[in-house]
Design a protein around this nucleic acid. Sequence first.
DNA 1: CCTCACTTGTTGTAGAAACAACATATTTGC
DNA 2: GCAAATATGTTGTTTCTACAACAAGTGAGG
Lengths: 225, 225
Amino acid sequence: MDTSFLTTTALFRGISAGEITSMLDCLQAVQKHYDKGDTVYHAGTTVTSLGVVLSGSVFIENDDFWGNKNVLDKVLPGEVFAETYASIPGEPLMFNVTAAETTEILFLNVQRLLAVCPHSCTYHHRLVENLLSISAQKNIHLSRRSLHTAPKTIRGRLLSYLSYQAIRQGSRDFVIPFNRQQLADYLNVDRSALSNELGKMQRDGLLRVEKNHFHLSADEMEFYL
Amino acid sequence: MDTSFLTTTALFRGISAGEITSMLDCLQAVQKHYDKGDTVYHAGTTVTSLGVVLSGSVFIENDDFWGNKNVLDKVLPGEVFAETYASIPGEPLMFNVTAAETTEILFLNVQRLLAVCPHSCTYHHRLVENLLSISAQKNIHLSRRSLHTAPKTIRGRLLSYLSYQAIRQGSRDFVIPFNRQQLADYLNVDRSALSNELGKMQRDGLLRVEKNHFHLSADEMEFYL
DNA sequence: CCTCACTTGTTGTAGAAACAACATATTTGC
DNA sequence: GCAAATATGTTGTTTCTACAACAAGTGAGG
């Protein structure tokens, strides 16, 4: 087990590699291997363990009734999944989790993680803090997306999202972490309609855009800054 | 301080009234009074304390650039707000919090709450567990709404929401906790368009609806059950 | 009983987005 | 460097929604 890698993750942040090793025993951590396409967790089932992606990656996907797979998120090495459901005993998973590629996953039982451990109580505590922080962070992301998808028009959603990015990055020039299709998915709109609207906004002088690099015009930003 | 009331809240669940009393000292809990319309927390500021509504209620609202107040949520007695932001030091509030009526609020510093206390460590631990649970629960709600607002059409959103309610309540007959306007807000659509679509769906034989009581037709449910 | 406030359904219209189909970059792997 | 795959922009058509305006229903309080 590569505990030095774990020290870099949000979940084990602030805990030394040595401490992690002894904690993993105590927590009855289990490591499993998955090949591309394997199902890690099924929607509708209940889980007691969260997963830490050690290598590879997993998709969080929502399969509709006609079998269409809709990828909601990709969980990368060091990141955590299913922690929300493992934190609420009996809560059925809303999504499927499948291996996007060859993947190693470390499973941690959340009830044991929360239980007070006879030894190294301090680090257990740190682990719980980290878990709370991860949960709160996820909360923020969900709230923010909900905010950006609230406007009824594509332009409104773009302005909400782009002005937030400008503020966050402290400049009217900034790069976004999405390509067009991903941005369209994030804002819950059609990709071609999104491209179209970006074109209109450029003609209207609201912004300039080159690939995923944006520049917002000053007068538009006045509202937001 | 009415600690017996606190024992009924999600945050203090599983902790005795006596224990709560001693913990509140330790946590430096502060109680404050607000009149209707008073601002409790300003968007953009950072906070270190979560709030527990003791009596009255507060609105979580998103004020846009033209001063329009958009109520996102109402926090009732026993419920908690701002815990997400208080759990992430430095994270600025995304929303305003204002008193919906005469309100008493108990503020708890989250850092102190998370810090290991010299005494009653067990109960501190329970408090942190509860806080994690509240956060995870909020996460589920946000995810679920995001799922229900994912379809591009009003009908799609209604089917997603209503079939979930049917499953949750274990019957094709069920009552929803929203009136039309609230349901429209939740699904992020126009109220009149929503009413219109419900009418069409009745004519199409998908469901019957009377006020906030719904009955889904069997054949439509096959997809979902 | 009556009024007033609030909720809900209905209709028409104007506008916007989804969708499909395609042309044109741009990457990526070989 | 080339070919295949992927990403992006463009356009036209169809469908749906937002919006506005209004009628009808419901309920609470005087």
